[in-house]
Design a protein around this nucleic acid. Sequence first.
DNA 1: CCCACTTGACCCCACTTTTAACCACTTCTC
DNA 2: GAGAAGTGGTTAAAAGTGGGGTCAAGTGGG
Lengths: 158, 158
Amino acid sequence: MDQLHLRMDSLSPHQHFYAGEFRHSIDEKNRITVPSRWRRDEAEEFILLPEANHLFLLVMSPEEFGGMSSAVESNQAVSAHDRRIFLRHLHSRAQHGIADRQGRLVLPEELCRKIGLKDEVALVGGRGRFEIWNLHRWKRAHEEETPTYQHVANVIGL
Amino acid sequence: MDQLHLRMDSLSPHQHFYAGEFRHSIDEKNRITVPSRWRRDEAEEFILLPEANHLFLLVMSPEEFGGMSSAVESNQAVSAHDRRIFLRHLHSRAQHGIADRQGRLVLPEELCRKIGLKDEVALVGGRGRFEIWNLHRWKRAHEEETPTYQHVANVIGL
DNA sequence: CCCACTTGACCCCACTTTTAACCACTTCTC
DNA sequence: GAGAAGTGGTTAAAAGTGGGGTCAAGTGGG
């Protein structure tokens, strides 16, 4: 199983970097502006992937997602059965998202409800992907619960 | 035969994937609308392949099916006899399906009955193909499998 | 063997709902 | 102060859905 971890970490060497943390508001139509520094071209396309227990929303490029998918698919450390199940979950949880010309991403209603994205949210940079958190939850995880965050971070490999 | 499964999982040389899970209704004429994001071009042609024990219906492009077929054919890990049997099953189970101009796919009556596709169904994305499930069965399967997903997900770092 | 009738597939039209494109204004940054 | 970034709201287009009409293939009877 450790090989899987290694594989995911090393998959896209050319990966785009999203640096920093932004606090934006999400409007009544569940739109959120992607920070201008994180945009690459107009009419940008993203894949939205809620974290397993709806702690935050992962946002990445389709290429990144494709790489993730094929990394799982070709990983021989896990049984074929488990890979099938996992791939099904991965793809079924993922959603398409397209930014408008103002650089805003429209998030599905259901996703926002489950993750608790309303009013103020935090956009947290990462490698190849960034995360959208409920602001209060982010503050808690980041500032107050640093050890727990550290632990999660280690698992995630940030 | 397990090697064959392995092989089928790892083919898809092209990167096209269907992201997300849609809950649509199937009408009285057994028509189901393919989500617009999943459509490639007008008058689209699909291959319908019921899963071995009628758990769900696999839908894919003819090219994908061709690739699947030839991958089985050229797999040297399985005896020629087994390959012949498997190929015969594969081709006998497969059916043609064409979408109308509204993007709806008409499913054969018998297939719907066997798989239990009526009223509400779930369209589950995948790599190079998507699946059509009876909604209740999908919910059950999805929830039951979650622990396994959690396990793998933690390792991968989602 | 041909004709009439039945059945079912397919195509198109009309309506409803959802989505995304666009415009205008405010705020922030340099 | 100017330009870029972010926000709010309206409008137009596309997606989804239901139903009806038409044509073709299949079937049975004369």
